[in-house]
Design a protein around this nucleic acid. Structure first.
Lengths: 139, 139
DNA sequence: ACCTAATTGCAAATCTCTTGCAATTATAAA
DNA sequence: TTTATAATTGCAAGAGATTTGCAATTAGGT
């Protein structure tokens, strides 16, 4: 997986540096999408000293290459990122009380996208579909 | 419609002031969701002098009452608001080039929501479903 | 080893949104 | 209509997320 990411980076004139490896490592070890500052905190806990700005820049590069997905959950006011490489396209649900995020390994939108393109004459490139509610513990 | 909004506000111990009427007026006249700063600009053009902070506070009150809906489009980094009163629940698509926003008068998620509740044991309270792509002019 | 371009850190700026506080205003009871 | 009370507003300041400028460092190819 990292080998493919390396190739993707190189193909775009970028490098897979120690820093980027560390960022990717944290993302790979986490089972839910992380915000830049959460990622930064985890790097610090791992004794990896990387500036928050570098985290942002790294995430931008990886996102533009399609290596990570940028996710915006409802009313969060910050972006989250997760590894996309090798994972099925999916969505999320977040608990409005404790903030727990769970994956939803589904996407009902293939047919709908075609319909929308016909109706609106837009070309649909992306969609966000995120749910929020109460997790079992918080109900 | 404004009469109902008035009732909703009063029922919650709030008032439908001149200021709030002006905010609602702009939202009613606009056919797509506005950000706080866009709303503020439009008020200024209408010679209505309302502080941006008041716009934010007004939108918060109206949103919490369910009078307006808060919408977050992909990679925008800001919230948008539109009147909900009397409108069907719906979604949006935004052009990645020119930013034009169109309504999508549909929602395919009723059945899916029930499915998600069964699968995850969450109670689903909200969802965001937004599309982005290229509008006819920008393709 | 050398050159060039990519990467990083640090400081500072920007943008969106929130909070504190005092002044103003609406509403309802007296 | 006067008064008391709570809601509303503006202004200044703060907080959080993200971006930009710039100089120093580093990786990779030649």
């Amino acid at each position: 997986m990292k080998s493919t990411i390396d190739e993707d980076l190189r193909a775009a004139g970028h490098r897979l540096t120690r820093t980027r490896r560390a960022v990717l490592g944290v993302l790979e070890r986490t089972k839910y999408p992380l915000s830049a500052s959460e990622l930064y905190e985890r790097l610090q806990k791992n004794k990896v000293s990387i500036d928050l700005v570098t985290v942002y820049r790294t995430l931008t590069v990886l996102r533009d290459l399609g290596v990570v997905a940028q996710i915006e959950l409802h009313k969060e006011g910050q972006a989250r990122f997760e590894i996309r490489h090798g994972r099925e396209h999916h969505h999320h649900i977040r608990c409005q009380v404790c903030g727990r995020i769970a994956d939803l390994l589904l996407c009902p939108l293939k047919k709908l996208t075609a319909f929308i393109e016909k109706e609106t004459q837009f070309i649909v490139n992306e969609h966000t579909l995120e749910f929020s509610g109460l997790c079992p513990k918080c109900q």
